[in-house]
Design a binder for these strands. Structure first.
Lengths: 197, 197
DNA sequence: CATTGTTCTGCAACTAGTTGCATAAACGAG
DNA sequence: CTCGTTTATGCAACTAGTTGCAGAACAATG
């Protein structure tokens, strides 16, 4: 139940149309809460129905016609309420870790390349974040809202740093592993051409 | 599409009934892929239907009666295929960061307590992981599968470490913020009792 | 002005995960 | 032996997110 609030935040920062929101989600906001344009349109409709936002009056409402929204007081109040409410962090869900664990049973074949690929992706993302930091947060800004936004960006940077370090470490571990077998489990006569679904 | 593979992994490590699986998901596997017992039962049914696992013959099949499963060769093959296949890391989705960003617009009231609470939760989790590390991975083990499992645990430890550090940093930032206002945005006459839902 | 491509909006169907509850056997206590 | 509790299995309905596609306006071009 966070997408509506992500949209409210984005609209408070700047009133926008569905497509503009989509683009902004692809950039800054999407870095920690991604959404497709279909989700966004659907949610805009709901939010309007609930009286939390409204279409800007100037643009006329017809299909294929740009329609911008702004947040109403009720929307702002709801966002404030939600931001302060208690919410537990939801447990991690990571397929790479899962695959690593599966590999402990079923063999590490092919995994190393995958680790390398992920390392590269995370390095790229890290570089992008650091570019943003240099551009948007030069030393010596301290409007409170800048500090908060910087804090969020820091989380992104530190997370990507963590992943690149962990992946690098994982790769060195792999380097001196016995050798990638197709199956290192407690082999119980797995026929070579066993097939599947 | 990872739950079936998580189950296959768990069953390869040790054939189990639905409830046993549920318990194991609450512990080790659930640390990076959580699942409820309903999900697990549903998925066990599907996997059996697809011929990837089968019920152990000894136990009789009646409701309320324990029924254990083991992985068939086809299941092992499918797991190996999946573990080696390419999968992009899916983008971060974190409500706390989102709420922090919202707070930059709508005011930081109540947020500090929430940060503190999360800090405590992450510290607790970190302590638990470290306990497991001490217990299950004493120095000097190097069976390849132990190394892999340790690597996964390391990821958990390092992630929790990251969060505790980031949250600590965030709290010091909060300490010298102007003062938590109910609304620090470009105030446009937000009536105090504006509403909700 | 018909044709084609792009921008912008949106519906519908599907997949994955969650919540709430139902049922059946097993076991212990009165 | 029956009543309540625990263990174990499972269905059904709901929520959130994803995928695939389609339609309306607008702009460029022959």
């Amino acid at each position: 139940m966070s997408l509506p609030h992500a949209i409210l935040t984005a609209l408070l920062e700047k009133p926008s149309s569905g497509l503009e929101l989509t683009r902004r989600f692809d950039k800054s906001i999407g870095y920690f809460w991604s959404a497709t344009h279909q989700q966004i349109y659907r949610e805009l409709g709901k939010l309007e129905g609930e009286g939390l936002i409204r279409a800007l009056p100037n643009a006329q409402p017809s299909r294929g016609q740009k329609k911008s929204y702004e947040v109403l007081p009720a929307g702002r109040a709801e966002l404030a309420r939600w931001a302060a409410a208690g919410q537990d962090p939801k447990p991690l869900r990571d397929t790479l870790l899962l695959r690593l664990r599966a590999s402990a049973v079923v063999g590490t074949a092919g995994l190393e390349a995958e680790l390398r690929r992920h390392l590269e992706l995370h390095q790229r993302q890290l570089a992008e974040y650091e570019g943003i930091e240099k551009r948007d947060f030069p030393p010596g800004r301290d409007a409170p809202e800048d500090r908060l936004r910087h804090l969020v960006l820091r989380a992104g940077i530190d997370l990507e740093t963590f992943w690149t370090q962990w992946l690098t470490h994982a790769l060195t571990e792999f380097a001196d592993l016995p050798a990638p077998q197709a199956d290192s489990g407690q082999s119980e006569a797995t026929p070579p051409g066993a097939g599947q679904s």
